[in-house]
Amino acid sequence: MTDNNAFPADLLQLQERLHRAHAEHRAYLDGLPWSVVPLTGWVRGERFSHQGDVLDSRGWSDEQKETVDRMWAQIRELSIAVVGHPHWKSVPLDALIESRRQLKRQAHPVDVAKAA
């Protein structure tokens, strides 16, 4: 198992930025219509729904689609930077998975309200 202090500061910062990017992405998606394209909703009983009636979706605007794409691109870039960080070359293969789990736990996700 990796010592808590063994992670380089830049790797911890990258992981925290990745957590933040995921949290911001989820929060943004929560505010969007349920369908990317305009679709008619339904009432419970017409189709299966755990949540009851589903209202019509106006779909996403081009700006919203671009924002989601930009957020995903940032998440991908940060993920690649974390996974490709030179630190992982110094971690024994049999300890790699646990070390990555520990990094995620140590660089806790931040509250989106605090991230702004």
Results as ranks from 00 to 15, higher is better:
14 L>S: 03
58 R>G: 14
59 G>N: 10
22 H>I: 11
59 G>Q: 09
10 D>Q: 06
73 A>S: 10
11 L>R: 01
30 D>I: 00
80 I>S: 10
62 D>I: 01
27 A>L: 01
104 K>D: 07
84 G>E: 15
33 P>A: 12
81 A>P: 03
31 G>F: 05
111 D>N: 15
74 Q>S: 10
85 H>P: 06
24 E>I: 11
79 S>A: 08
67 T>L: 11
103 L>Q: 09
86 P>K: 12
21 A>S: 14
32 L>Q: 13
39 L>W: 03
80 I>P: 00
114 K>N: 02
77 E>M: 03
55 L>M: 10
52 G>W: 12
104 K>M: 15
107 A>T: 03
108 H>M: 04
28 Y>P: 06
40 T>P: 00
48 F>S: 08
102 Q>V: 05
49 S>D: 06
67 T>E: 15
45 G>M: 07
103 L>V: 08
104 K>V: 06
5 N>R: 15
115 A>P: 06
106 Q>D: 04
76 R>S: 07
99 S>G: 12
75 I>C: 10
104 K>Y: 01
48 F>P: 02
13 Q>D: 10
88 W>Q: 09
110 V>I: 14
89 K>H: 12
102 Q>M: 11
37 V>W: 08
10 D>I: 01
11 L>I: 01
7 F>S: 10
96 L>V: 01
112 V>D: 06
81 A>Y: 09
56 D>F: 10
4 N>A: 13
89 K>I: 03
93 L>P: 01
67 T>A: 14
48 F>R: 14
11 L>N: 02
72 W>V: 01
108 H>W: 02
116 A>D: 09
9 A>N: 12
45 G>D: 08
39 L>E: 15
44 R>M: 11
33 P>W: 07
39 L>D: 04
108 H>I: 00
112 V>E: 13
12 L>A: 02
10 D>P: 01
73 A>Y: 05
68 V>P: 02
29 L>D: 09
42 W>A: 14
58 R>A: 08
79 S>D: 05
16 E>M: 07
46 E>M: 09
62 D>P: 03
45 G>S: 09
73 A>I: 02
